[in-house]
Design a protein around this nucleic acid. Structure first.
Length: 472
DNA sequence: TGAAATGTTGGGGCG
DNA sequence: ACGCCCCAACATTTC
């Protein structure tokens, strides 16, 4: 048996279980070098919230690797240079990694792979983060699907929902000395202000936290998911697995496997895994999904850029409590409930007529679950410019959505505390509250809490007119 | 994975 | 007893 080391290059697959690249490397019995590169040359820099998450996720991965006898090496720079250096330093002749699907990383990987192969090295790549490769599910006319429902139906036969790989029992350690950057030196954490420590209580970052979240969710809440997933006021309405999934602390296959006992009651939940797969299909075939309208017909749409309105939205100061609660939840916890995402996104695009790309960028920066496929596809979905998109005339009413899905106003009270003393009758529409009610609640509109920055009815009519104009 | 406007129905109050 | 009006409640259409 050869003693030449193998490099396992970790990316958005920060886990030791169900990690094909790691498992295959371990299986060879050869020394394994586990590497993470903070890439400085990729098309898109990670957002602030994602960097914060990544820091802790790398910490957790490092501990998980140590438990099986391996060490995580950290480096920062251009991937191909770092791999070259590491090959030089260690004499490694094989590199294993799990595939990624966004354009710039794909190009980086392709270039590295052909270069290394040309030099006689072995490169093995694996599917680890999707249930099926985005190029496999095809329509009868050999196209990729552009509508979710038929896609998901057709995909069933191609999904790899088999048993997840176990954590390798032990990994042969590479005994030579390898320099590693310290985690701190990657400078992933925010310093001033240190908003990270305020987000910490909301999460248990790492694959153990992910496994626990899955177990908890599958153990009960999943059965009520079809109803409760719309209720941001309920703690267990959704799984909150998204950031774990985005960094690969858990795989979709592990999630599917966790639901195996009651696949039927988990159907609606697993369809969300389907939306993720579908988003990757769209991204794979439309590499510029985050920056260009999927439907070119939208290119002429007349947006109404306004820095003031954009900032009011970003900071949760629109004067619509449900929208503001969502935007503040995002800012404070790095996450926003999915029902609320639809409402806040619709508000930015349709009430404020601000380009969906502005929203996409903000979410990319502030979400801990920011995912190159889901984020882009979902913003285009709301804008109506995407595949299988929400119709142009679907304009969410920001206060009736609140009344439907946060019926007691608890969600608003939690994130918009200056309104917390308002009775539920007015909590989603404080501008309609009688003066004595406002006085009692200590609310002065325009002072302690903003008046609506746009009138709902007017904004709705303007949006319909704008969409109509762009269709002509 | 909407909302609002418009149309229809049917019970009850009332002359 | 009967017709008329009002207006919820529900259904359909439109954006």
């Amino acid at each position: 048996m050869s003693d030449t080391p193998i490099i396992v290059w970790f990316r958005r697959d920060l886990r030791v279980a169900d990690n094909p690249a790691l498992s295959e490397a371990a299986k060879t019995g050869r020394p394994v070098i586990c590497l993470y590169i903070l890439e400085t040359e990729r098309e898109r820099e990670l957002g602030g919230a994602s960097k914060w998450w990544l820091h802790h996720s790398l910490q957790s991965l490092s501990e998980d690797l140590e438990a099986i006898g391996a060490t995580l090496i950290l480096r920062k720079g251009q991937a191909f240079r770092i791999l070259d250096m590491l090959i030089e330093e260690t004499g490694a002749d094989s590199i294993y990694w799990n595939r990624r699907y966004d354009l710039a990383p794909r190009e980086i990987d392709a270039a590295i792979k052909s270069d290394l192969k040309a030099r006689g090295l072995t490169v093995e790549t694996f599917r680890a983060n999707l249930l099926s490769e985005p190029w496999t599910v095809k329509t009868k006319t050999d196209n990729y699907y552009k509508v979710f429902t038929p896609y998901w139906r057709a995909a069933q036969d191609s999904l790899d929902t088999g048993k997840p790989l176990p954590t390798p029992k032990s990994i042969k350690t590479y005994t030579g000395e390898i320099k590693s950057n310290s985690l701190e030196s990657l400078k992933l954490l925010p310093s001033s202000p240190d908003w990270g420590s305020k987000m910490s209580p909301h999460w248990t970052i790492g694959s153990k936290g992910a496994a626990k979240a899955l177990e908890q969710f599958v153990g009960g809440p999943v059965a009520d998911y079809p109803e409760d997933r719309n209720r941001p006021d309920k703690d267990n309405g959704t799984s909150k697995l998204s950031p774990h999934l985005a960094f690969g602390e858990i795989s979709p296959k592990q999630i599917w496997h966790g639901c195996k006992g009651n696949l039927d009651s988990a159907r609606k939940f697993l369809a969300e895994i389907g939306w993720r797969e579908f988003s990757y299909v769209l991204l794979f075939h439309n590499p510029k999904l985050a920056t260009e309208n999927f439907k070119p017909a939208f290119d002429g749409f007349e947006w109404n850029p306004s820095e003031d309105n954009l900032q009011a939205w970003q900071h949760g100061q629109t004067g619509y409590p449900f929208v503001d609660a969502g935007m503040r939840q995002l800012w404070q916890t790095g996450w926003q409930h999915n029902r609320v995402r639809m409402v806040t996104a619709s508000f930015l695009i349709k009430h404020l007529l601000i380009d969906w790309r502005e929203g996409e960028k903000w979410f990319w920066d502030t979400l801990v679950d920011a995912d190159p496929a889901s984020n882009a596809a979902s913003w285009q979905w709301v804008a109506g410019s995407g595949a299988d998109a929400s119709p142009y005339f679907r304009i969410f009413n920001p206060f009736t959505q609140g009344e439907k899905f946060d019926p007691n106003g608890d969600y608003v009270r939690k994130f918009v505390p200056e309104l917390s003393k308002l009775p539920k009758k007015y909590i989603h529409r404080p501008w309609e509250a009688p003066q004595n009610v406002l006085d009692y609640a200590g609310v002065t509109l325009g002072k302690t809490y903003p008046k609506p920055i746009v009138d709902h009815k007017e904004a709705r009519e303007k949006a319909l007119a704008a969409y109509k104009a762009s269709r002509e």
